[in-house]
Design a protein around this nucleic acid. Structure first.
Lengths: 172, 172
DNA sequence: GCCTAATATGTTATAACATATCAATTCATT
DNA sequence: AATGAATTGATATGTTATAACATATTAGGC
């Protein structure tokens, strides 16, 4: 897999609005953890901040490389533990088809008041790598559930990963 | 991941009907390859036979262990090359969420006259591990396509992996 | 039949992704 | 401060997959 170049939020120049978004997302994460009695430690915050600074999902080892710029002794378990914590707390998603991780955008899940319970869906562009998290709409959800029922199967709310072409890449 | 015990088609006793199914599937594969100018070699046949003898998907290294019973020098590339070939020729599928491989059942794809082009779907039981390949029905297919279109996204015909509970495990 | 180009396989090594284990530290609570 | 639970550090290892290069096999033209 070839992947795009990466950004370090504490070293690279970022737009004010992007930095503001990151701050807001970190503040939201801190609140969310507090509310659930989970400890949003420095290590966990740092990993989430690195993910938030990217336009694309990162693999665990890309994240590790970035982390080592601040924390040279970081090892794989450092990253994987932080990712496990963040995933358990619905702050990060894992994309199985690309072994990569990205921040939850909170559009699909319980953190967002207007949405049903967690059932995120990802649109993955096979051309540019864009990975977009969108809510699973009712019609699709129902179609999934019904088709599964034809086979006596009850589907769980695992993220769907839909590969294809994003709007920009379709034009080009 | 814990996995069920495995079967070696050339050593273990199997029912006549299962053996017959395997033979038919191998014959079908041979024809299919012939028709496409692809070489269905001994190595490839052996790997497909091992997969056909299982009730469940296998990982590449489980397959390697089985392969080594006949072919002690087999190495990872032996298995991965055979799997690549079999996947390119639509004879085997890879399940991304479990890093495992299983034979195509030909119910969903061009090999089967009554079906549309390749768009398999898998129902994966998180309790017993059953992995069932079923055709993606029209309603679900349309719902997927339409929802993606809302985001300017064009979905490709990649297999869907739906996790949940099979009928037997729901009862229990 | 023989040559040759293409395809497939053997072999070694390594890349890429992830977890087990145990010791040391930190933290919240008493 | 003492305790127990959660977290982190550190080392090693497990698991999944591919790169790179040598050798063997095969199909097709001569």
């Amino acid at each position: 897999m070839s992947r795009a170049p990466l950004t370090d939020p504490e070293h690279a120049p970022v737009s004010d609005s992007a930095a503001g978004d990151t701050e807001r997302a970190l503040a939201h994460a801190a609140e969310h953890c507090e509310a659930h009695g989970a400890r949003f430690t420095k290590a966990r915050r740092r990993v989430l901040a690195l993910l938030l600074a990217q336009q694309q999902p990162l693999t665990a080892y890309q994240l590790l490389d970035l982390l080592r710029e601040h924390q040279p002794g970081a090892q794989p378990p450092t990253v994987y533990r932080a990712l496990d914590f963040l995933m358990r707390n619905e702050l990060v998603h894992r994309i199985e088809s690309t072994n990569s991780y990205l921040p939850c955008n909170h559009q699909h899940c319980g953190h967002h008041p207007a949405r049903d319970a967690h059932w995120p869906q990802f649109l993955l562009c096979d051309s540019c790598g864009e990975t977009r998290e969108v809510p699973l709409d009712g019609a699709l959800r129902q179609a999934l559930t019904l088709q599964a029922r034809d086979y006596g199967f009850e589907v769980g709310a695992r993220p769907l990963e839909l590969h294809g072409l994003c709007a920009a890449c379709r034009k080009a």
